[in-house]
């Protein structure tokens, strides 16, 4: 078993909190053992991979996998830990206050948001759904590709984390609400690149076409045509 370093107890406790209510005691223990064994001292940015491995080991359905991932994100953020950073070391922490912990996505988006934001949000969430439907491996590859390509697409760490929060189905709209509509295509392109890597260009085109078609049904599409995101 790997020896957890000084920074991991906080993460471990957050994970235990996250599992509470979703898994039984025995399942929680075995999930935490997996963390100690394989993730505590090693893999950076591995939360999605960890959740996928827990779900596979416990044979959890997809829906429950999503619920656990959401719960873990929330638990980590509550303790001021950036879920998208390395699981070890002080560098893995960012200043997140419990007050900024986002709510779970309810599917409506912010009421005072622009048409561009709502269209963008619809496309992004549809793409996440499309990638999720391709399975856990695709989801993991997608997430890794997002991290790998973000800087090449001039996406800041905050932007990438905001995207990942949406991937975790958290209602963390603040970052994107502040962006100008002209900045959204960079994010959708980053997602396209990541989708190509994770799913292949054929499936990626299909997922994006479907997301765009879905967004075109919104009333906001008249003000902000979803194709501007391509």
């Amino acid at each position: 078993m790997a020896t957890p370093n000084s920074s991991t107890p906080g993460i471990r406790d957050a994970l235990a909190d996250g599992f509470r209510g979703l898994l039984g005691d025995a399942e929680t223990q075995s999930a935490l053992s997996l963390w100690d064994r394989s993730y505590a001292t090693g893999k950076p940015h591995a939360l999605i991979e960890y959740v996928n491995e827990v779900a596979a080991a416990l044979m959890l359905p997809t829906r429950q996998r999503h619920e656990i991932r959401m719960a873990l994100y929330r638990a980590l953020l509550t303790r001021g830990i950036d879920p998208t950073r390395s699981s070890t070391g002080a560098a893995g922490r960012r200043s997140v206050t419990p007050a900024t912990v986002p709510r779970v996505v309810n599917g409506t988006g912010s009421a005072n948001a622009s048409a561009a934001f709502r269209v963008f949000r619809s496309v992004v969430l549809d793409v996440f759904r499309g990638v999720g439907a391709a399975g856990a491996t695709a989801e993991r590859d997608f997430s890794q590709a997002i991290r790998r390509h973000a800087s090449a697409q001039k996406i800041t760490d905050s932007g990438r984390m905001a995207l990942e929060a949406w991937a975790a189905q958290l209602d963390d709209d603040g970052y994107f609400l502040r962006l100008a509509a002209t900045e959204y295509p960079s994010f959708s392109h980053l997602m396209y690149v990541a989708a190509c890597e994770a799913l292949g260009p054929v499936l990626a085109d299909r997922v994006f076409s479907s997301a765009i078609a879905q967004a075109e049904t919104l009333a906001d599409a008249a003000q902000f045509p979803p194709r501007r995101l391509l």
Partner: peptide, 16 residues
């Protein structure tokens, strides 16, 4: 290679 032509594990993908 073209974007996504090979999966992260190196598996080739067909682009018709």
């Amino acid at each position: 290679p073209r974007l996504g032509r090979f999966a992260p594990d190196g598996t080739p993908r067909i682009i018709p």
